[in-house]
Amino acid sequence: MTMIFGIALPALLGQLLIGFINGSFYALLSLGLAVIFGLLRVINFAHGAQYMLGAFTAYLLLVHTGIGFWPALVVAPLIVAAISALIERTMLSRLYDLDHLYGLLFTFGLALIIEGTFRWYYGAAGQPYATPQLLSGGTNLGFMFLPNYRGFVVVASIVICLAVWLLIEKTRLGAYLRAATENPQLVQAFGVNVPLLLTLTYALGAGLAGLAGVLAAPIYQVSPLMGSNLIIIVFAVVVIGGMGSIGGAIITGYVLGILEGLTKVFYPEASNIVVFVIMAIVLMLRPAGLFGKEI
């Protein structure tokens, strides 16, 4: 068997793949956080809850209406986005003029309500969600065995990240969005409906979290607390990358997922904390984050 640094190659590649999958979710979630933060200046603590909501919506659609994975991949994020838009319009939008900490505290309370309600109703145990038929089984790549669904998640997350990046950097809507980030009053004066833009942005970010949740459902189990620990890691990812750029959030997500996977191979005890340690080191060396511009 091929060995690298005393580690069997298949084990190394297996952990790398897991790291890449985790990294896909870190990238999707930190992308959504960065999009929301860019315009609203709100750190969306409810992002993990919205991710869980996406997974649960897919699960409930399957159980109660028989709607399968593929339609759910579209419907569930839309439902999450709609609910989040409503919350933004009725409550979150009242906090924009205040200190940004209030947005964080509000969304923290929101996360407790959403996760607490689901936990109360469904218990803390996870519910299995079957892999879609089309993607069951796996492919032998010669050097390792790749479950088809996991390959799909990696490809899908890259495509989604690229699409969002293109939307923001290359379209007219994205141009409005970037302009409103720089100077909302001026953009409003040009006749753009900025409050609507804010609502749409929050819905987009939350929808992305919901989409990540649906993608995650067949890999991890659907459980009320699936997002609450993840969101803290994603916060660390965002601090490492700096919130300055969308691209930075995506790249940092993947890189940290892979680094975490490698840690599992070489020093498993530290795999839980490696992201936080990297965050501390980055903060000491480059406080604004790797891609950050401020300060």
Binding site: F106, G109, L112, I113, G116
Partner: peptide
Amino acid sequence: PVTVIIGVIFVLCV
């Protein structure tokens, strides 16, 4: 569920 109540108080306070 206590968590939900804590969340609600949080939201109301803010």
